[in-house]
Design a protein around this nucleic acid. Structure first.
Length: 877
RNA sequence: GGAGGCAUAGCUCAGCUGGCUAGAGCGCUCGCCUCACACGCGAGAGGUCACUGGUUCGAGCCCAGUUGUCUCCACCA
């Protein structure tokens, strides 16, 4: 026992976190097995980038998941949190290329594909576990034995399986279409990977002479550099100004090429000049017009964003350089009519933020319309539910308007597309296994498609590929579909939507029942945390300084689903303080501990019943809140229960019964209730703050015990003491009122007051005497049914059903006292008047629930009692 | 152009299916090193719940509109 008294005054997370984590992991507490006797509960982690480092966004995401999984595990589910990492095609490739350039001055082309990919794997082996150990620091209770990687063998099989299947169904096709090209990453991107940014630009008005006439057209363009690819001019068919020109031809300036003028509904008459230059290879709308009107398709940019051989004099120029040159030439040759400032949206690459170039290119696509149908239905029918609900609309809206998904990437790091081309006959074969012999001509000169798949193609399969699909594994059978997916709103389109349609297509069942969407972590000023701003806060530094529990609690509280959170160190500090509060409360309990267990005693005091009642309610509420994904609300309730109810009141209320000289029976009784409530509340808090709760648990139950394998507390009807609870609140009101009076009168804390309590509930206050003495600084308590005859020189205070007299003649200022009482009386009278107004309203009495009406009446009775006492006090002054 | 979020105390935010005198943290004021904790204890000050109208016995919450602000989607060259 002596070592218990030596517990330090402040909680030191550094001392225990790693040790406890190791203990949990080694004990296998994170492991989940196929277990027909239990119900499964599954979460798959949103796989962080394999080369990434833990940032606040991860910390937030993982904390939510860990809280849910620990809760369900304690509730008795076979809870699997399946971890893994994503190969993150572009991001990782860029990183390795950077390192290669910086360290060796080489490009990936210098190494060649095979060697480069080998280097990336090397990099992955070296840095891929960094993020995993960082996840551990947070306390994440993943089943690490089941760690998966999007490019490991099983997942690669799943990718091939899906590709071949979709291809055979005609849902994957290769075609020449307009795609977004990032000249820096040198790859195609999907629509989702383009971020539009408003940028200042110009609207150049350019004169196009009409062939065989003196007339000319003026065209407004923001992108003169693609002019060399113009193959037509479009006007609106209803536009009177240009009707006579339809069917004629114009001369493309500088290139001196003849291009047709045609009519198309797409053209807005009132924008610019009402004429559009059509560049089918470099604009999605022009592409469509090009197809409708059978225009020529001329590509003028190469994969670096430089002008190609079709660009005449500008060949070899970078696109921006070319823009300047063309504007200069147009002006010099008299074609430029005017230049306007114009801000417009420019597409940029979500990885490197380079302006993307719409270009026509042969790529692989997933045909979305048929897949989207089921994906929308599953959500609309409630098979997948979004929390908060509003994201449902964002999802369906996107799904309903989604374009085909460009899945090929001109990268080297990723799943190489399982399509094979025969050099001899040109046949293409899509196959799960490598093709070495052409099935058509028997030729053996076979090349695999050079491109790799979009990273998100493999992540889309994550909920089932990680469980072994396409194999029919017992894990897949048992743990699928998963229960909750936790992720930020920023990747609903990238990932969530694609998982849903993939699962519907391949599993014929949704990938998860609930999608819990959270917001972004912002800095204290509300700005996005970013590398370029340098305002990111490293979660690992926070953990090191304040502990993982304080960080976790900060990320959970004061926040509701779907909303962004502002992170500030001050919040972490206050939660660190909360940890310390918990620590000291348990230190107090341990210091006074003599009983061997916390079985509840037969007899319970008023305050025991009060705290047990409140605790019991807390169990129910926290459980309900967690079931409804209201983690922030649950955490808030735990905070105030522990700090306010348990520490500030109950522990203080217990003190008269504990310590030296106390009655052993009463002490034992108090200890049992203290221990019972403390252990229970540690369990409720454990999903949020795993470390300190385990530490306290082991202090109370022994180091060979773990809170992780304890059972989630249950609501217990036997602990429902509503009436005693109300009585106790009454006593507390009295205590508060006395404290307030003392503070108002500047009574020094050392001065004990005599208390004369006048009340009809004499038994109640006599039984509460020790508590009143302790908390209300009474050195003696007298309970009377009627006011003492001589109250001169006494201050009185009214609270609930009691009036308290304190003989402190030297401190009383009668006039001030009168004012104070009058003010209180006015307040009470006002409240009664408001209630009367309600009760006199027939409609209220008629229509409001009986419970509410009865409540108002009850409140009125109490207020009236208070009023009477106040009036009496005033008379006695 | 379309959709959505947010607007509650000085600051940051909770407030579940409408129901007592709207809460917390931080900050602020006053008093306390009270034998678990000064990372603490006690007592306070501080709010026309953005605005207007409506529904209701009753609105911070529901409906319509207005203003401000942020975000997403679309992409009129």
């Amino acid at each position: 026992m002596s070592q218990r008294r030596e517990l330090p005054k402040t909680y030191d997370p550094r001392e225990c976190e790693d040790r406890l984590y190791r203990y949990w992991e080694e004990s296998g507490f994170f492991n989940a097995e196929v277990n027909p006797d239990k119900k499964p509960f599954t979460i798959v982690i949103p796989p962080p980038n394999v080369t990434g480092q833990l940032h606040m966004g991860h910390a937030f995401d993982e904390t939510l998941q860990d809280t849910l999984i620990r809760f369900k595990r304690m509730q008795g589910y076979e809870a699997l949190w399946l971890p893994g990492t994503d190969h993150a095609g572009i991001a990782t490739q860029i990183k390795v290329e950077e390192a290669l350039r910086n360290e060796e001055g080489l490009t990936r082309y210098d190494l060649g594909r095979e060697e480069f990919v080998r280097r990336v794997w090397e990099w992955k082996e070296k840095y891929g576990s960094r993020i995993l150990s960082q996840l551990r620091k947070l306390g994440s209770s993943c089943d690490w034995r089941r760690l998966r990687f999007t490019m490991d063998e099983g997942l690669s099989n799943a990718v091939k399986e899906v590709f071949v299947d979709l291809y055979s169904k005609g849902l994957i096709y290769k075609g020449s279409r307009i795609i977004n090209w990032c000249p820096h990453c040198r790859t195609a991107l999907s629509d989702a990977e383009v971020e539009y940014v408003e940028k200042p630009g110009h609207l150049w008005h350019v004169r196009y002479p009409i062939e065989g006439s003196d007339e000319y057209l003026v065209i407004a363009t923001t992108r003169p550099e693609t002019m060399m690819g113009d193959t037509g001019i479009a006007v609106n068919p209803k536009d009177e100004r240009y009707r006579h020109l339809i069917g004629k031809r114009a001369i493309l300036p500088i290139m001196n090429r003849s291009i047709p003028i045609f009519a198309d509904e797409y053209v807005e008459m009132d924008f610019g000049t009402g004429c559009v230059k059509v560049t089918p290879c470099h604009d999605p709308n022009d592409f469509e017009m090009g197809q409708r009107h059978n225009l020529e398709f001329i590509l003028v940019l190469d994969e670096d964003g430089k002008v190609n051989e079709n660009g005449g004099p500008y060949q070899g120029m970078d696109r921006l350089e070319c823009r300047k040159a063309i504007v200069r030439d147009l002006e010099a040759q008299g074609y430029l009519v005017k230049t306007e400032d114009y801000t417009h949206n420019v597409g940029t690459c979500y990885r490197c933020h380079t302006d993307v170039e719409p270009v026509t290119s042969a790529q692989w696509f997933v045909k979305m319309a048929p897949l989207a149908k089921e994906a929308i239905r599953a959500v609309e029918d409630g098979e997948v539910r979004f929390v908060p609900e509003r994201f449902t609309k964002i999802y369906t809206n996107w799904m309903e308007n989604v374009h085909d998904w460009c899945i090929s990437r001109q990268l080297w790091w990723g799943h190489q597309i399982p399509a094979y081309y025969c050099d001899d006959c040109g046949h293409m074969e899509v196959s799960k296994t490598p093709v070495t012999c052409c099935p058509k001509c028997g030729g053996s000169s076979i090349r695999q498609d050079e491109d790799v798949l979009d990273t998100w193609f493999s992540s889309a399969l994550w909920p089932f590929s990680t469980l072994g699909w396409p194999e029919k594994t017992p894990e897949l059978e048992y743990f699928y579909p998963t229960d909750v997916l936790v992720t930020g709103y920023d990747i609903i389109f990238f990932w969530v939507a694609r998982m849903i349609f993939s699962a519907m297509e391949h599993m014929h069942e949704p990938p998860f029942k609930t999608v819990y969407i959270h917001g972004l972590v912002r800095d204290a000023q509300g700005r996005k945390m970013s590398k370029s701003l340098g305002n990111g806060i490293d979660p690992l530094e926070i953990i090191d300084k304040y502990g993982a529990d304080a960080l976790r609690f900060t990320l959970i509280t004061g926040n509701s689903p779907g909303n962004d959170i502002r992170f500030s160190v001050e919040k972490v500090e206050s939660n660190r303080n909360f940890c310390n509060k918990i620590w000291n409360a348990s230190r107090f309990v341990l210091m006074n501990l003599t009983v061997p267990d916390f079985a509840l005693p037969e007899t319970l005091s008023l305050e025991d019943k009060w705290i047990l009642h409140r605790y019991n309610e807390l169990v129910r509420e926290v459980t309900d809140n967690l079931d409804r994904f209201e983690l922030g609300v649950a955490a808030d309730k735990l905070y105030s229960f522990i700090w306010d109810s348990f520490c500030d009141w109950y522990i203080e209320l217990c003190k008269p019964r504990l310590g030296e000289g106390a009655d052993p029976a009463a002490s034992e009784q108090a200890q049992r209730v203290l221990g019972h409530v403390l252990t229970g509340v540690m369990q409720l808090l454990h999903p949020f703050m795993p470390y300190i709760t385990e530490q306290v648990w082991q202090g109370l139950r022994g180091a060979d015990s773990s809170i992780m394998v304890s059972q989630w507390p249950q609501y217990d009807e036997k602990l429902c003491f509503a009436e005693e609870c109300r009585d106790m609140e009454g006593v507390m009101d009295v205590i508060r009122a006395i404290r307030t009076r003392r503070a108002e009168m500047n009574v020094p804390p050392t001065r004990r007051a005599e208390l004369i309590i006048v009340t009809a509930r004499g038994d109640l206050y006599r039984s509460a005497e020790p508590v009143l003495k302790k908390l209300a600084y009474g050195s003696h308590v007298t309970v009377l049914a009627e006011a003492p005859e001589d109250t001169a020189g006494m201050v009185s205070v009214v609270a609930g059903t009691a009036r308290v007299y304190m003989p402190m003649s030297d401190l009383v200022d009668t006039e001030k006292e009168r004012q104070r009482l009058q003010k209180e009386l006015d307040n009470v009278s006002g409240q009664i008047a408001r209630i009367d107004q309600k009760l006199q309203n027939e409609k209220f009495v008629q229509k409001a629930p009986a419970q509410v009406v009865e409540g108002e009446k009850e409140r009125r009775r109490k207020l009236q009692e208070l009023q009477a006492r106040l009036e009496e006090s005033l008379r006695q002054l």
